[in-house]
Structures are given as C-alpha cells and as structure tokens.
C-alpha cells in the first residue's frame, strides 16, 4: 500500500496551484524516495518537475512503486476542499484504480475523505542533462512574479540579459518598451530579499511571458526563486521548498528566425 501523511497540508494545496494551469494530466510517481512528477504542458514548450521527499511526510509508506495517473483539474478541485491548517494524507492500494485524500482538522474533530478515480496516462519522461549554466540568478520569488506581471503589460516575450552589471528583463510591444534592471546586492550571503548572480558568461535569451507567468504560481511555496540561464538552452526556474523538496520549471527559448 501507499500512504503519505503531510502535516503541513497547505503545501500540497500550493503545489497543486503551481501546476494545475500548466499541466492537464500527469503521473505522480510514488517510490521509497518520495513523490515525483514530470510533465510537459500540452504544447510541449515547457516542462515541470517536482519532488516531495519521503522524509517530508510523517509517516510515509510505499510498499511498491506506483504511478498515480491524475487529472490535475479534478485533483485541484479536491485540494480546494482542504483547509489550510488540515493534515493531508494520500493513500492508495498497490494496484490502484483510485486514490484517497484524507483531510484532518488540527484537533481531529473533522475528517474528510475524498476518493478520486485514476487514469491511464502514457507519460513521456524526458532526461534532463546536467547543464553548465552561463548565469544563475537568485532573487525574491515575489520580485520575479512582479517583473513577469509588469512586463506582460508591455509585450508577449521577455528578454533576459545577464552580465557583470546585473540582470535586465525587457519587453517590447506595440505601445513601447519596458526594461527592469536588477543589480546584485552588496551583501553576498543568500538571505531572503537578496539578488545574487553567479555569472560564468554574459548571456541573453528571450522567453514567452505567458509560461513564466504560469511558473510564478509557485511563488507561495518559496521566498526565493533561482533562474538558471544558458545560451540556446531552456531556462530552469526553481523554487526550493523548505524541508520537503522543490518544483522546477523548464522553458524553451524563443529564437530569431
């Protein structure tokens, strides 16, 4: 059997919000390591990869590796039925046709039990090679969300340029041009609120704001976001979630024809 109990159930709600607009359906792969998911959006332009490590649950039991084929919209609807302070347990049999979500209130006076049918999903798993990135930019997650929101008012795409002066986000549209420049903070330790840039090579790449905006749905999960950029490669946008794992998004760049 599979059983994973998450004391901070609100995390599962937030993970769900962070993927449901990007991915329609996906397999949640449950193993001894934890719960992982990898899926592309329907147009195969972006990819989301998440890991919830087993030690983030209490308890976690996985007798046999299983894949839970889940329709994200349906699961998101069920997750909305959980209160923010509920403890969430995910449970299924070894050869499951369905999965059960149990929501317990903190004082255990209320227990909700939702059973959801599973789907057979042909998952296309992509191997993501270790990449030497030209620039790794860490910044407050809320700042990145704000930049994506503001530049979406100007154009469809953002050009991310990183050099020794800092990082610049720029967008261009019918009405004009918008540019947002961030300098690296003087303090080097990576505390919340800091912008830090690890630069190997100056780099400039263009990405669709529509997808970056989908990625920023993960903002409630982490205070910091990391953008790893490399010439002619997808950008990796990572939100590390304390004590349990991460959600990473990859987005293919736009190129000039």
């Amino acid at each position: 059997m599979f059983e994973a109990r998450l004391v901070q159930g609100s995390l599962m709600k937030k993970f769900m919000e962070a993927i449901k607009d990007l991915v329609k359906e996906a397999n949640w792969d449950c193993t001894g390591t934890g719960i992982s998911l990898q899926a592309m959006d329907t147009s195969h332009v972006s990819l989301v990869s998440l890991l919830l490590r087993s030690d983030g649950f209490d308890p976690y039991r996985c007798d046999r590796n299983i894949s839970l084929g889940i329709n994200m919209e349906s699961m998101a609807k069920i997750m909305k039925c959980a209160s923010n302070d509920d403890v969430i347990t995910i449970r299924s049999e070894d050869h499951p046709d369905n999965v059960t979500f149990v929501f317990e209130s903190p004082n255990q006076e209320k227990v909700c039990d939702y059973e959801m049918k599973l789907m057979d999903i042909d998952s296309e798993h992509l191997g993501i090679p270790d990449t030497e990135y030209d620039a790794i930019i860490s910044m407050p997650a809320s700042e990145f969300q704000r930049i994506c929101r503001d530049l979406s008012n100007i154009g469809d795409s953002v050009k991310i340029t990183c050099n020794k002066d800092g990082v610049q986000f720029s967008a261009q549209g019918d009405t004009g041009i918008g540019k947002i420049a961030l300098k690296q903070n003087a303090v080097i330790d990576k505390e919340d609120g800091q912008v830090s840039i690890e630069l190997n090579d100056p780099v400039s790449l263009t990405f669709a704001l529509r997808y970056l905006t989908f990625f920023t749905k993960a903002t409630p999960l982490a205070s910091t976001v990391t953008l790893s950029v490399s010439a002619k490669n997808p950008v990796a946008v990572e939100y590390r979630v304390d004590d349990i794992g991460y959600i990473r998004y990859y987005l293919a760049p736009k190129i000039e024809e």
Partner: peptide
Amino acid sequence: LLIQQGMKSFYQFA
C-alpha cells in the same frame, strides 16, 4: 520574428 522552440528539441526521452 521570434519562433518558440519546443522542449523535445533539447531533451531526449529518458
């Protein structure tokens, strides 16, 4: 003109 690339042109199936 900017062309959106797809994910599969970068990563192989595992």
